[in-house]
Design a protein around this nucleic acid. Structure first.
Lengths: 216, 216
DNA sequence: GGATGTGAATGCATTCACAGCA
DNA sequence: TGCTGTGAATGCATTCACATCC
C-alpha cells in the first residue's frame, strides 16, 4: 500500500525528524479519542507549531494528505511508524542498572513503542543475577556475546560518566547502530553509529537559564 | 541603513544556550584533570563542534578569553554557572514518584549541579508517607502549600501523560517558573513559564530513525 | 606564533503565499 | 470552500576570515 517512492537522497532537516515523534504522539492521542482526520492547522496548533511547518515536514517523506480534508489519523500513524522504523520491533540492550537504568528497565511501554529490551548488563558484581522485570542482569563481560547472539541493534547507556566512553566503544565495535546515552559525557560517535545524549542535569540548567530570562 | 546595534536585549540563539551546558561539563572535566586553560579549538574538538562556534556562543555573554592563551578553566566555570543561574541553589519540587521519579529522587548529584530537591509529591495514596532518600512523599493536594512555604521555583514532572496538563497548570498557578517534563504530553506553556519536554520514547524513535539513515 | 572577538558571508530552517485539487 | 503541497522569500544559525591582542 505504498505507491509513494519517497526519495531519501534528499537531505532531511534534523528538526523535522525530531518533530515526527511529536506528530506521532499527538496522532496516537487523537486516535484514542476516535478522531479520524486532522488538518495540518489543528495538528500544529495542538503542538505549538505552524501549519506550514507540519506540511513541510511531512512533505519530505511523501504525500499523505487529502486537500480539503487533511490527514487520516490511522494511516498517518502507520506511515510515521514506518518512517521512524518503529513499525518493526527494535531489539535493545540496556547497559547500567543504577537508578536511571532501573527506571528504564521497569518501564513497560517499550514494546508498544517499537522497542524490546532484550538484555541488561552491569559492571557491578553485586547486581549481576538480580532480576528486574522479566530480565536478569548479566555481567558486562558478556556484552559482546549477548549482542551478537540476540542481533541487538540499539543500546541505552546509563552508566557513570567515567565508564561511558569504553562502553560506547565496545557497543560500536560489536555492531550496535544507535545509542541513547544518559551519561553526562560527550563521547564522539564512532563511524556508522548514532548517539543521542540525554543529560538530565544539562536539561535542568536550561530550565534554570530560561526561567531567569523571561523575554524569550 | 546602518543597523545600530542597541546594547539592550540582544537576542541569544537557543542552540547557543544549549551548548553552554556542554561547555560547562567539559570544563568541569578538564578542571578535574588539573587543566588550567583551554582554547576554543580544543574545547570545540572535544565536543565535536567548531572553534568559531564556541567563540561566538561565549561572545553573546561577554569577553572571557585571553588572545594567545585561551580561556581559564576555573573562572570560565564560574562564569557559565552564573549565566545559567546554577551558582545559586534552585529549589525544586518533584511531582510523581513512579519509576522515573524515584530514579530522579535517588540521584544525589543535584546540589553540586545547583539544584536542591525540596519536596516530593504524588497522587497515589499508597506512596504518600514513603521515604525516598531524605524526603517523604507528600500528597499532591499539598502541592500549592509546599511550593509557597518553600519558595520553590522549579519543578520536575514525572507523572502519567493523562495527569500532566493538570499538574503543569497547578504548578504554573502557584508561581513555578520552569518545568522539566518527562510525561509524553505536549502541554502548552502557561505565560511566564518555561517547559522542557523530555520524552524517552521519542528519543528512542530518533535513534531508530537515524540508525536506519546513515547519511547524517 | 597563537589565540580571541566579531562583522560579513554562507547555509539551513521556517514561513509565506498561492496553484491545484476534493 | 477548505485544505494540501511546494517554490520563493525570509529569517536565523553557523562558518569564514581577519583585525587585534598577549
Amino acid at each position: 500500500m505504498s505507491p509513494n517512492s519517497s526519495q531519501q537522497s534528499e537531505h532531511i532537516p534534523t528538526p523535522s525528524v525530531r518533530r515526527l515523534s511529536l506528530y506521532l504522539r499527538q496522532l496516537e492521542f487523537l486516535q484514542s479519542n476516535q478522531v479520524r482526520t486532522v488538518s495540518s492547522r489543528k495538528l500544529a496548533d495542538s503542538l505549538g507549531l505552524t501549519d506550514a511547518q507540519v506540511r513541510k515536514d511531512l512533505g519530505y517523506f511523501g504525500q499523505f494528505g487529502r486537500p480539503g480534508v487533511g490527514y487520516e489519523v490511522e494511516p498517518m500513524i502507520q506511515q510515521l511508524r514506518s518512517i521512524l522504523g518503529t513499525d518493526k520491533i527494535s531489539r535493545t540492550i540496556l547497559v547500567g542498572v543504577g537508578n536511571i537504568g532501573r527506571a528504564i528497565a521497569a518501564y513497560n511501554g517499550f514494546r508498544e513503542k517499537g522497542f524490546e529490551l532484550i538484555a541488561l548488563v552491569d559492571a557491578d558484581r553485586r547486581k549481576i543475577g538480580k532480576k528486574i522485570g522479566q530480565l536478569t542482569v548479566q555481567s558486562i563481560d558478556e556484552i559482546e556475546r549477548v549482542i551478537h547472539e540476540n542481533h541487538i541493534r540499539l543500546a541505552i547507556v546509563a552508566v557513570p560518566a567515567k565508564a561511558a566512553r569504553e562502553v560506547i566503544e565496545r557497543l560500536a565495535a560489536c555492531g550496535v547502530r544507535g545509542i541513547l546515552n544518559f551519561a553526562p559525557a560527550q563521547v564522539p560517535a564512532p563511524p556508522g553509529v548514532t548517539i543521542r545524549n540525554l543529560d538530565v542535569a544539562a536539561e535542568l540548567e536550561q530550565i534554570s537559564f530560561l526561567a531567569r530570562h523571561p523575554d524569550d
